[in-house]
Every structure is written in structure tokens, then in C-alpha cells.
Amino acid sequence: MNVNVEQAIYTIDKVRHLTESTYVLRFSRNGMPFTPGQHLVLGLPGSQELREYSIYSGIHDDALEVIIKEVDEGVVSRQLKNIKPGDSLEVRGPYGFFLTRAALPKAGKLLFLSSGTGIAPFHSYIKSFPGADYRLIHGVRNRNEAYDAEDYQARRFVACTSRDRGGDFYGRLTDYLLETELDTQSLVFLCGNSNMIFDAMDILRARGFSQNQIYTEVYF
């Protein structure tokens, strides 16, 4: 397939393994401008198989980072897990409008809801705008999947763990949403698997949020 979007070869700087299956790829930025919430299309150079990953790093960082979870039947997530510093990576983008659709960072209070590696756009945003008035709720199975939790202000971050009690809340993100106080003036951004997004949206609407306060980005 011959595509005509911007594409370039980047060099891997570092591979940081967060869990047995999740890792962060760090690679040369080559001056690429982006806004938090945008994604890149990645793969091995010359490969027909490319996948989309949200940018994990902040806009002031020298390098680009993406967070990837290895998928059992996946092709690219498994290929990239074996990549080494100095190896080449084909990169296209950046694309997308997820966090750009609201007037950020002047948006006021922000409620970020994520599951798994769906935390990437929020990590990028918070690294870019550390003074933002945000609250980040992260749904994972186990505490060790609360990736880079130390990058967030403790009072603004809640890890909901559904399979162990090591998180800030034991249960699903949606259980937490039902229990916690929510500021209905906040803009809400959801990123993660579609089931979490559907369930969370129902709860948000029932709790008084209007549809035009809610923005979603689904991860497959």
C-alpha cells in the first residue's frame, strides 16, 4: 500500500518495561509538533502492519513516547516489544483531535477517565500542563498496571484496581464513579475500552453531566 501521509523513520532511544506485557517506547522526536491527545501510527520500517498509539510524552519533552500493551493475538505490539535502542521505527502522524476539542488548558476543571493504556493522552496532557486543574481516575486490574502513578499529584489521581486491593479504590472505575463526589461543571474525557466508556457515560449522564461536556476516545 502506498500512502502519502507524513511518514518518517525514527530511532529507538529506550524501551522501558512497565509490566510483563506493557512497555514504553521512547524515540527521537525530530522536531515533531503535536498536541496532547494526538496519536501516531507506528510499525517496523517497510511493514504493511501499522497501528495507532497515543502519544504518552509531554509537549516539552525532547523525545516521543508511546505506551503499548502486548496483545495476545497482536502483530505490531508483539513485534515492537522486541525492538532495541538504535533500531528504526516507522512513524506517521501526529493525528487526532481528542483533547484538542475543548479549549485546553483554559478549560477549567477536567475529569479524566481511563482504563489500561488509555491513560496515555492524559499522561501527555498532565506532563505538558502540570498546573492543570485535573482529576484522573485510572481503571486497571492490578496495582502494578497503574503506570507511572508517581507522575501525577497524589491528591488528583485515583487508581481503581479490580483484582487486587493495592489501588486507591478496590473495584472497577465505574464502581468508583457511582460512589465518589463529582463536580458536574467539569469537562470529562474518557479514553479506554468501549465497555468502560459506555458504562461510564451512562453514569455520568445519570449524575447530571450533559453530552456536550463529554469527549471520548476508544481503544480497541
Binding site: 500500500m1 500512502v3 502519502n4 501521509v5 507524513e6 495507532e52 493525528y95 487526532g96 483531535f97 480497541f220
Partner: peptide, 16 residues
């Protein structure tokens, strides 16, 4: 188009 709807090839062929 930069929308990348999951069914659509247009961003890859018409470009950004």
C-alpha cells in the same frame, strides 16, 4: 482528512 474513522481508508489516500 485526519479523522481516522475505523472503516475508512481515505486519510491514507487523500492525505492530511
Amino acid at each position: 482528512c485526519d479523522n481516522f474513522c475505523t472503516y475508512c481508508i481515505v486519510p491514507s489516500v487523500r492525505g492530511r
